[in-house]
Design a protein around this nucleic acid. Structure first.
Length: 169
DNA sequence: GCGACAG
DNA sequence: ATCTTGTCGC
């Protein structure tokens, strides 16, 4: 069994409006590159529980910066037919190349798939998931943060997940 | 063959 | 991811 949390935030304030916690069976083991097959179904179930049409879905993990250019963020975006981006704490696939704008981009098969986002002394790897351009990704990324290391949607979902696990034990 | 390897 | 003490940096 596993759980998934989906949160709905307003923009640009990033205040929590709604959230949903779901649980279900997770039988597939974690295999790098195949994360979506393990995590996507519950994530989708949680999102659908919100009964909303989000302008952007922020997903834990990578999007096109993936060996098959199709990480969990792309997977979720395609199924839900919504724009998605992936946010990861480590690089899975791709080459880091610094652009003329001094931003480090993640290149996959000669295409720009994402960027490295330096933040609070560390780095986050932000990638295109589905239905978003690198230009929009670059523009929206700084607007997803409040005062935490993780983007606000991720931080809030994480916090709810931890509380839920604690009260449930 | 060896190393690397999102969560 | 999870288990866990002390330590480092802002």
């Amino acid at each position: 069994m596993g759980i998934a949390v989906a949160v709905l935030l307003d923009f640009p304030n990033l205040n929590l409006k709604e959230y949903a916690v779901v649980n279900g069976v997770i039988d597939i083991p974690y295999i790098p590159g195949l994360l979506a097959f393990r995590e996507a179904p519950l994530m989708i179930k949680a999102y659908e529980r919100l009964r909303c049409e989000a302008d952007l879905i922020v997903v834990d993990g990578h999007g096109v910066t993936h060996p098959r250019e199709f990480g969990v963020a792309s997977h979720v975006g395609l199924i839900l037919n919504r724009p998605t981006i992936g946010v990861a704490k480590g690089l899975l696939y791709g080459d880091i190349v610094k652009g003329d704008d001094e931003v480090e981009y993640i290149i996959v098969n000669n295409k720009v798939g994402g960027l490295v986002y330096p933040h609070q002394g560390k780095k986050l790897y932000i990638s295109i998931g589905h239905k978003i351009s690198i230009k929009s990704l670059k523009a929206i990324t700084p607007k997803l943060f409040k005062s935490h290391f993780l983007p606000e949607p991720t931080y809030i979902a994480d916090a709810i997940s931890k509380n839920f696990r604690r009260s449930r034990w």
